[in-house]
Every structure is written in C-alpha cells, then in structure tokens.
Amino acid sequence: MQNARNPNEPNQRERFEASVLVHLDAAYNLARWLLRDADAADDVVQDASLRAFRFFDAMQGPTPRAWFMAIVRNACLDWIGMKKRRGVEECYDEAVHGGSVLDAADDASPESIVVRASAARELHACISRLPREYREVLILREMEELSYREISAVVEVPIGTVMSRLSRGRNQLARLMRAPEQRRSS
C-alpha cells in the first residue's frame, strides 16, 4: 500500500498544504455536521488529513477540495459505523452540540442580531434533524458552496441524485422550519 512514487520530492508537503490543507475548515465543518461531536471531528479530520497526504499522489476528482472532503466524509461514515456497531445510538443533544450560530463581529443592530441569532438557532436545530443524506448535501452546497459536480464526487452519487437530494432536503427543511411546535414534541 505504499505510494508507487516517491512521496518525498521537495515541496510535496508544501504542495499538499497549499492545495488540500487550505480546505481544513471546510473539512472540519462537514465533519462536525456529520458527527455532531467536536472531539470526534478533531480526531477524524486529523486522521483523514494524514491519510490524504499519504495518497496525495493518487489525488483525483474535479478539485482537490472535493477529493479531500470525500476522504473526510468516508472517515466520518467509518466512525459512525463503528459507533453503531458498538451499540451507541446516534443522538442529538442540542445543549451539547448546539454551538454558536452568528458571527460576533456582525455590525447589525442588537435587536436584529437577537432575531437573526434565534432564526439561525432554529435553522441549526432543523438541519440537525434532517436525514444525513440531505444534511450533507445542504452543508456542502450552502455552507461550503461546492458545485454540483464537486458534491457528486464527495458523496459519490450522480449529479441528478445531488439535485434531487438538495430539492428534497430543502423541502423537508422548509417544513421543519414552518412547524416548530411539531418539531419540539417529536
């Protein structure tokens, strides 16, 4: 499983850092939304970054970002699978995983910050309740602004499926956002 080519040419690591590691935030954000666990996200992203470096020579796909995020996503799914096998139910605890929702450096008025913060919190909670298939394409599209082609490479489904998942995901998300009382009682 060693790389066929010498992975130690000068600048190999610099090239990796410049083309792949610059997407560490994107990778981490995806991992957080998939795993819902900050510690696990740290571990998985670190592991995936090193794995990506080892296979940097074999990089493929539309963009380095999509390639890296596919590796991170697979590592996340491995992790989720491992937890499932160990009988740990995937549960979402808003108090633990809620996280921040607004940039503190926003220059809007205090009132509108409060309104927007609560709207963002609502959205955060609703996204968390989406099935993983919808959640991941929405994060990749809305937060990371990946193209359909990139999302297709990351999630390993055809572009048509990306399209229909985004559409269904948004429909479901819109329903959840419209029915807060229903959501809380579920």
Binding site: D42, L50, A119, A120, L123, E142
Partner: peptide
C-alpha cells in the same frame, strides 16, 4: 432558506487541530 444559511456560523478547525495536523 439559502439566505438563512448565510447567518449560520461555520465550524472552524481549531488552532490546536491545525497545529497537530501540521506536526503529524
């Protein structure tokens, strides 16, 4: 919905994670 996403803060890799990855 798209507009609402703009207010959602992205989770960012911590400096500790960044350092750790670079070190490894």
């Amino acid at each position: 919905l798209r507009a609402a996403f703009a207010d959602l803060q992205r989770h960012r890799a911590s400096d500790a994670l960044r350092r750790s990855v670079t070190r490894e």
